[in-house]
């Protein structure tokens, strides 16, 4: 029985991974074809495969591909960060935004930009600052919750407090900065891929590629599985609980910081993607849910980015922030999965 269940679980994992990769590829194709000048999917394909491709189309595609790639990467990063934070807090409500890290990352970035606007132009600087801000936010939330006794919901509530405070702070700072920014300041508060440059892909790809390597080398997925059943349970399996949670939070904050520095705060992906992966796979095993979350987060973000572009196109009122669309698009799907898994 153990064999059968384990084999079936693994088969399900590989099937789901393959289908999500396929879905992501299709969504990315759609994302390349939608925009102010619509390019038929057939033409996108022929351009990508090196076949016949007009110069204008090639130019538009290369610009659009940057946006698509950034959406794929940022979505995956937020999803992994969310899954890690849900593990660290043992709470299904946690994500980078709710625990306050996104807001403190943006607040740190805005404060730095207020001192020297050049910070925003240097991605390595802005990513470092946003990462430091995210770590600070995490430690602030955990310290408040520890002072409060550390029980139950206290981490989430302290996170909400930190998040609310620093959302406000970053709003004020960005408001003060707005005439010196290239893009409307709302974009940073609600996320947008409209201002990204080609080199941003690298700045996102490096942390995203490093994180699975780090997580694997440290054995984090298994450690988080054990940690889910209590501090003592993990300790009797030989894990050092403090180390496991701090390292996981470190990786989560790095991913959050990098994504905030490049696309601003995109909400909901970090919360929803881990749940989507759990409901699809039927387990919370982090070895399964971390990769599936990344794929689900990427798909959700690319789809939302495409929808945002389509809305911009139809309304002709300027760019729609990405974070707004991820919620509108993702929430009904999450609700559907909740109902379905509740019945199953």
């Amino acid at each position: 029985m153990a064999y059968r269940v384990a084999k079936l679980g693994r088969l399900r994992f590989f099937t789901l991974t393959a289908s999500l990769v396929l879905a992501l590829a299709l969504l990315a194709l759609a994302s390349l074809s939608v925009g102010s000048s619509m390019i038929p999917v057939a033409e996108v394909l022929s351009c990508l495969s090196g076949g016949g491709c007009g110069d204008t189309t090639r130019l538009i595609l290369s610009l659009r591909a940057t946006r698509t790639a950034v959406a794929v990467l940022a979505g995956g990063m937020l999803a992994v960060a969310g899954a890690l934070m849900q593990g660290v807090s043992r709470n299904p409500l946690a994500d980078p935004f709710i625990l306050g890290s996104s807001s403190t990352a943006l607040a740190a970035l805005s404060a730095a930009a207020l001192l020297d606007i050049g910070v925003l132009a240097h991605r390595h600087l802005s990513i470092t600052i946003a990462f430091a801000g995210a770590m600070l936010g995490y430690f602030l939330a955990t310290s408040i919750s520890m002072v409060a006794g550390g029980a139950g919901l206290s981490l989430i509530l302290s996170g909400v407090a930190v998040s609310a405070l620093f959302s406000g702070v970053s709003h004020v700072l960005l408001y003060l900065l707005q005439d010196r920014l290239r893009t409307p300041y709302v974009y940073l508060l609600m996320g947008s891929t409209s201002g990204v440059l080609e080199r941003d892909i690298l700045y996102l790809a490096v942390p995203l590629a490093l994180s699975p390597a780090a997580l694997l080398a440290l054995g984090i997925p298994k450690a988080l599985n054990a940690y889910l059943f209590g501090d003592l349970y993990a300790a009797q399996l030989g894990y050092r609980v403090r180390l496991v949670t701090t390292l996981s939070a470190f990786v989560a904050c790095l991913l959050t910081g990098a994504s905030v520095a490049v696309v601003g705060i995109v909400g909901f992906v970090g919360l929803a993607a881990p749940h989507v992966s759990r409901m699809l796979s039927g387990t919370s095993d982090y070895r399964v849910t971390l990769p599936l979350s990344a794929l689900a987060g990427s798909s959700l973000t690319v789809f939302s980015d495409t929808v945002a572009r389509a809305i911009t196109l139809l309304s002709a009122r300027g760019e729609m922030p990405l974070g707004v669309v991820t919620s509108i698009v993702g929430a009904p799907f999450l609700a559907y999965l909740i109902v379905r898994s509740g019945r199953g």
């Binding site: 269940v5 043992r90 889910l228």
Partner: peptide, 17 residues
């Protein structure tokens, strides 16, 4: 603690880590 959905087999297998 059972806040996140884990299957019994996932739980028992943690002992093999």
């Amino acid at each position: 603690p059972r806040t996140l959905p884990m299957r019994a087999i996932d739980f028992v297998l943690t002992s093999r880590y």
